[in-house]
Amino acid sequence: MNKLSLKIKKTIKNSYTGWLFNLPLAIGLAVFTFVPVVISLYDSFFQYDGLNVRVWAGLGNYARIFTKDRDMNKVVINTLVYTAVSIPINLVASYFLALLVNNTMKGVTAYRVFYYLPCMIPAVAGGLLWADMFDGTYGVFNKILGFFGLGPYRFFRYEDMRALLSVFIMNLWGVGGGMILWISAFKNIGKHYYEAAKLDGANAWHRLVHITVPMSSAMIFYNIITSVIGTLQYNGTLTFGSRNGRGEENALYMYAVKIYYEAFERGKIGYASALAWIMLVVIAVITAVMFKTSSWVFYAEEN
């Protein structure tokens, strides 16, 4: 009896310390995460500018997004194209870059650092720089291309898909981030696989398809998931795109920029909240589908 009450007392005392250390997190999650999430769901059913009175709109915001909003088609297409194209480009380009520096030659570490360096440039400086270099008249790219009798090109300022294409070109400079992950994947795969494959006369492509991809599929899968979630929320066009990141004739207009624009340029917090909730649902569905179809992922046993 006495023993039991002592034990209970000890549990309470231990829990007390645990909760005390965890208290900042509990408060922080409540105030800065849960309350805002609930409020944004609530706001999505109102016309609300974030300052004045909420006016009940029922499902009006949602209905408008799916039926009346003329920008939505372009926004959804741009976002999907951007996600579907930029992730594979990055995976493949960074793979070949990693392959290039996956050797033990003298000074190879310095090259890896050079390749990774562009990833350290803040997006806002990158945006400034690329908007400058891609300028239709004064940009250095047009000057160089003009030397070969090409151009001038308007890059980010095209009214069609060529604007997005320019973003893909720009993104190639950030390929060092993926390279780092591939190099670590190579390191985790036993050398003997590659040596055996080389003896069998397998070239770089065969080694990629038959060894590297299967052996690092867990990492690839994790990266695809996080890149899809991140890319669907991409708002980088704000830093270089004309018209508040929307581009000419909405050529660069993507979903996260749409939310930003509706909320903070047009003061429609309620409408933007509805947009954000749709985004959450879409991300949740896509993530769930990817996990359901992840039987191709091979989890190596831990050593």
């Binding site: 944004s40 974030g50 929320q233 909320a263 954000a276």
Partner: peptide, 8 residues
């Protein structure tokens, strides 16, 4: 998504 909390 960060934007979800940011609005409210």
């Amino acid at each position: 998504p960060g934007v979800l909390t940011q609005l409210s």
